[in-house]
Write a protein that binds this DNA or RNA. Structure first.
Lengths: 208, 208
DNA sequence: TAATCTATACCGACTAGTTGGTACAGTATG
DNA sequence: CATACTGTACCAACTAGTCGGTATAGATTA
């Protein structure tokens, strides 16, 4: 058997990811991707037919990492508590820690793509959408359970539907990156995700 | 005096804005901007020294529109109610209506820029930051007043500080655009902004 | 009042450099 | 011996930006 090419492929992907978050993949030339990956043009085009193919492979790659990360958070959180609301709150806390406060270019590849028309193919969109959906569905399910439990104690209906609350996770998540970049302060990401968590908690546990 | 050039300049700005929201300004070539504005290269470079200068002028332009829009919302809202919380809630409602549910490319130029390193100069960042700050400061002030009013009635402290709640407006606002693009459904923008509004209301008016 | 001047506004061919992508001969590795 | 590259040379298309020239219209002058 020949030597393993997956290592080189991953180097290309890693290089592209760094550049994509730093300056946007559209603005990053293949030469830059190649230089950073420390390979040659020949090697690049051996693994990818075109820049578009790289772009698509990169979303797929990141989506896969994201799904694994989400699965890991779910597993940890479901081990820590049996209460559905607590599980969601814990998941928020873990998500908040995903970005180091010192990170120079905190951001989400999905958001980066969706503001760069060239890369925002229907295929890429669907990958992002399904990731969002999967995660939102988990939150929504948990919140519905939580609402039922709270309802049994004879409380009023929620001011916002579990579906909208679940989607708001991604609103805040994505918006927090924009905030962090605009204020040039990566710690804002953490603060905003935690603020969302605290608001969620308050909505489900109204003043006694 | 020669004929008026401001019209041409505005045409360029408008053209650039459309393209920036559609595909990102970095990916839009000057030729495209020029073609859409129905002018020539000479006219473009008469008004702008470089693409970078256009980019900066465009954020300035949009920031100015945004500030006027915010001022208009504040004026309307302060005419409609004297209660600070109600004013903020109304402002959210008005903001939610900013994006038509049929809009093809809903988005924010600031977010677009901050994911495209080339355009994200320190000067551009500061323009966006000051717009965010100004608007967040208004919300924060109102929420502090609202908290005081609620406190007089002998209620518990807020689960999230007014400052974080105010910033969350922009988190949700920016994130909602990403959501709308990812789910390919512009109506999500409105829903998310309204969901934020309802959550705010719930936090300040806990179950009686 | 006609000719000239001047400053702004604009035109469009052109250039130097970069881009994504190709071609292909050779080398290393399992 | 097929796979996984390296290295270099190349190309057409496109890029931002330049530059010499022109059109317009008000101000100055003869």
């Amino acid at each position: 058997m020949p030597r393993d090419g997956t290592q080189t492929r991953n180097r290309i992907l890693d290089s592209a990811l760094v550049l994509a978050l730093e300056k946007g993949l559209a603005a990053a030339s293949l030469d830059q991707v190649i230089e950073r990956a420390e390979i040659t043009k020949g090697a690049f085009f051996y693994h990818f037919k075109s820049k578009d193919e790289l772009a698509l492979a990169l979303v797929s790659h990141v989506a896969e990492l994201d799904r694994r990360n989400h699965a890991s958070i779910v597993a940890r959180v479901e081990g820590l508590s049996r209460d559905p609301l607590q599980q969601v709150l814990l998941a928020c806390s873990l998500t908040a820690d995903l970005v180091a406060p010192s990170e120079p270019n905190p951001g989400c590849l999905f958001a980066s793509y969706c503001y760069q028309g060239d890369l925002w193919s229907e295929a890429a969109r669907k990958i992002c959408e399904s990731n969002f959906q999967e995660q939102a569905a988990w939150i929504e399910g948990k919140l519905k359970q939580a609402a039922k439990l709270a309802g049994r104690k004879g409380k009023s209906a929620l001011p916002v539907s579990p579906a909208q609350l679940a989607m708001m996770f991604h609103s805040v998540f994505e918006g927090a990156f924009v905030l962090a970049r605009t204020y040039n302060d990566a710690s804002l990401f953490r603060k905003q995700v935690l603020a969302y968590r605290d608001m969620l908690e308050a909505v489900f546990k109204p003043a006694k």
